[in-house]
């Protein structure tokens, strides 16, 4: 495993290009429509899980209500395109901004709260958003949802097949990855991670934790909103039932299985969870039991997820002084 990692690390740009070319080319080999839909799901959930990973994995604020931001994005898109006939692209940005504003508002309590209280606030907020979407019939169509959301066009090119949406999702995912990568490897990302690791020390070094957390939340929510917007035009019909707490947990299970605090984790998590969804379709409802069991198993044996580092705070690792020489030495040998 470590050898593979070292190899990938050495040829990073090559591997990334190869992965990108592969992602662009392989759906062209005449897959069935249903298959392409699965690829779309994987990419969509990758960005969604990745955006949750920004809050959960990088700044360590366990948010459980990501479905709420997703919901806001989808409804903004649905309402503005069906009622006001505004075109897709500006509304997409608005979806993201709407969700980001919601994220900012929800993160205000985080200025005073930590850990579990934050989790509960996000959970509650997600549920409040869903309840409002369900009951504010004048705007959201209540339990009937919103139908006939128009397909997006791009200079006369209409996104009307799963394959075309695949490329849209891919584009968004790549942009998301690029921007997140740059953020994380900058002062901003470092301040997020310092909050995750040790908030007291971060403060003593002059990291303004409150605005940093707020920006982190807003950034995560922004991408959830973007994906929500695309989801709305992709399925052309939304109702509030999609955005339940279970959806939030579903997204969370992806980053937990894939590995929090890594950029690659959500991809792996999304592939595993969505792949399992398809593979386990024959056993019907039991597959949800499988997910739940999988989460517990992961927490027991690999809390850092499949791709996570075992020596990270997310792994619950206790650093042992005695082993210092050994592990330190190994690490140096790799790098």
């Amino acid at each position: 495993m470590s050898k593979i990692k070292a190899f990938v690390g050495k040829h990073r740009s090559l591997m990334l290009t190869a992965a990108l070319v592969f992602a662009i080319v392989f759906p062209l080999f005449g897959f069935k429509k249903s298959m392409v839909r699965i690829f779309c799901r994987i990419l969509m959930y990758f960005t969604l899980a990745g955006s949750l990973n920004i809050t959960n994995g990088y700044s360590g604020q366990t948010s459980l209500g990501h479905a709420g931001f997703y919901c806001i994005g989808a409804y903004v898109m649905a309402i503005l395109t069906t009622r006001f006939q505004i075109s897709f692209w500006p509304v997409l940005l608005l979806s993201g901004i709407g969700a980001a504003v919601a994220g900012l508002i929800i993160s205000v309590p985080t200025l005073r709260l930590k850990g579990i209280y934050l989790s509960i606030i996000t959970l509650g907020a997600s549920e409040v958003i869903r309840i409002i979407a369900l009951n504010w019939e004048g705007v959201t169509g209540g339990s009937f949802g919103i139908k006939d959301i128009p397909r997006p066009t791009f200079f006369g090119f209409t996104f009307d097949s799963p394959l075309k949406f695949y490329y849209l999702f891919l584009g968004v995912a790549v942009i998301f990855l690029l921007i997140s990568y740059r953020l994380i490897h900058s002062r901003v990302g470092r301040s997020w991670m310092s909050i995750r690791e040790n908030e007291l020390a971060a403060k003593s070094l002059g990291v303004r934790t409150a605005p940093a957390k707020m920006m982190n939340f807003a950034y995560g929510a922004f991408w959830a909103g973007i994906i929500g917007g695309i989801y709305a035009v992709y399925v052309q019909y939304i109702d509030s039932a999609v955005f339940s707490l279970d959806e939030g947990f579903n997204i969370m299970s992806m980053i937990i299985i894939g590995g929090q605090g890594t950029l690659i984790g959500p991809i792996v998590g999304s592939i595993v969870v969505n792949g399992l969804t398809e593979l386990l379709r024959p056993i019907g409802v039991w597959r949800f039991v499988m997910y739940a069991a999988l989460i517990i198993v992961m927490m027991w044996f690999r809390p850092q997820g499949l791709m996570g580092e075992s020596n990270s705070i997310l792994a619950g690792a206790k650093i042992k002084m005695r082993k210092a020489g050994k592990t330190g030495g190994k690490k140096e040998a790799i790098s």
Partner: peptide
């Protein structure tokens, strides 16, 4: 700090 507050990981 009295007890070191490093970013241990």
């Amino acid at each position: 700090f009295q007890t070191t507050q490093l970013f241990q990981f």
